[in-house]
Design a protein around this nucleic acid. Structure first.
Lengths: 276, 276
DNA sequence: TTGCTCCTCACGTCACGTGAGGTGGC
DNA sequence: TTGCTCCTCACGTCACGTGAGGTGGC
């Protein structure tokens, strides 16, 4: 007299649903079980053990197809070991990814109000900016004279840029452009000045006459002209990957500025005869 | 003149496939984009930013449906914060589960050959056995006199049992049975003796005449009789949850023993007039 | 008779992936 | 002309879940 349990009882013993057990059967992980006169599936100790193995392998991350292979033949030690080694790597990678996700969420929750703005803040210092700091220090520039507003502005802009995987070679081109500017102290100081002025206009309203006045100051002082061959961050466009990439990049960066800042830049450009 | 990129270029910038972007559009995460004369989708900076937000939220674990809600209205701070808090909990739970999985796989890989047998070994000391040790020590029994073979055998059997979620109250019933035996030193010693004899028969061949001889010894000595009211582990069956559960449990435990051990137990039972 | 469990389809979920069959762009 | 990208269906994947409509067991 073989011991017999119905599918619901077996499911409860294993902590799964009856539907799951029928699914295992359908995909060939379990054979056709004994049936009661009314057609009910009946399970004994053998089937329980089989199910237990299935669940254990599942708990280690094997897919049902992999489990079918592993539990198929009797002696595939090598195969199972290989599968487990593969899964160990996958598992570790998943843990790392989830830990990064957790860090990110915790940082967001701790940083204050959670709104669209907060989501757009870069998680860490953009690589290009970190690199630029090192380069600047090597050249003996005094970074403490640059206001934190400018650092934050640059952090936002470069952070936005680095959120995308720009085509091959872009990064190097951009670095080259930066190098060319900071290799000439006059142009570097002009860049910082323009940055300061731009940052100072973050909270100005878009139709303020103040904007025109500041544009005039910048143009008269010759600061803008100094940058003309490579007009500030906004022109730091890599040459090769088609014009459309550069245009989109420019639009992207402009969009990250306030309306007043956008007008300011457009007016400066217009004064310099740059139609872009 | 709006800047325009084709779907493949945008996909590359974001590290996704064109199919994924079309999918986002189909489920309403992105609006209908501009089209070239030939019907090609065209994207500008605005769409890139939208896609970036989508990907960032996805990276934090939001489903596409959640993202649609969060990015839908302008000011649902509370909603997003709540979603993130929920995700943080989920995320931590997933990390814990994956870490447990990793431990398990590493332990298996380190333990030697990875075969079906290895998979059936309990990952840790079964709870019931740990509890029993404490109870025994409280009663002053000398545990070091019990061979490691018996501990391993019990570990296997209880480990198998505890792999299942037996019905409510089962655990307490089983503990009660164990308590009743160990509260009488004579019966406890009989239990250990039977355990030792059983363990000693693990490697005996199933048709060896040695089995009958050992059965006779055990029956003559009265050891088996002492346990008759609750015949060893194999009868540690909880009363209530229907007979079929007990029968399956018994089959399960028997199946975890070698053929010789199974015969030994069956013969002892027969001698005692127990028909089960 | 009532309520519970079981049965077998058939279709849904989630975030895309995979072709199929066809057209535009250089 | 060739090869690449794009287009739109329609169906597949993975591990089940969700009913629908019906029957058995106590």
């Amino acid at each position: 007299m073989r011991a017999q349990l119905r599918i619901g009882e077996v499911a409860a013993l294993l902590g799964v649903t009856p539907k799951a057990i029928r699914h295992y059967q359908r995909v060939g992980l379990l054979g056709e079980p004994a049936r009661s006169p009314a057609g009910y599936r009946l399970y004994g100790a053998r089937e329980l053990e089989r199910l237990l193995r299935v669940r254990r392998l599942q708990a280690m991350g094997l897919s049902l197809a992999q489990i079918r292979q592993v539990l198929g033949g009797p002696q595939q030690d090598r195969s199972l070991r290989e599968v487990l080694e593969q899964l160990l790597a996958t598992c570790s990678a998943q843990i790392r990814a989830l830990e990064a996700r957790r860090e990110r969420i915790q940082a967001l929750l701790a940083a204050g109000p959670v709104d669209a703005d907060a989501l757009d803040q870069p998680a860490a210092t953009p690589g290009m900016l970190a690199w630029a700091r090192v380069e600047l220090e090597q050249r003996g520039y005094d970074l403490s004279s640059v206001s934190s507003d400018v650092w934050e502005q640059d952090s936002r802009l470069f952070g936005l840029l680095e959120s995308f995987s720009w085509p091959e070679g872009y990064q190097e081109t951009l670095r080259e452009t930066v190098r060319q500017v900071i290799d000439e102290p006059e142009r570097y100081r002009a860049l910082v000045q323009l940055g300061e002025r731009l940052a100072g206009m973050a909270t100005v309203s878009a139709d303020s006459p103040e904007i025109e006045r500041r544009v005039e100051v910048v143009v008269r002082s010759g600061v803008a002209q100094l940058l003309a061959p490579a007009p500030a961050e906004l022109a730091a466009t890599p040459a090769p990957p088609a014009d459309s990439f550069g245009a989109v990049l420019r639009e992207l960066l402009l969009g990250a500025l306030s309306p007043a800042q956008q007008r300011f830049l457009q007016l400066v450009r217009a004064q310099l005869g740059d139609g872009g």
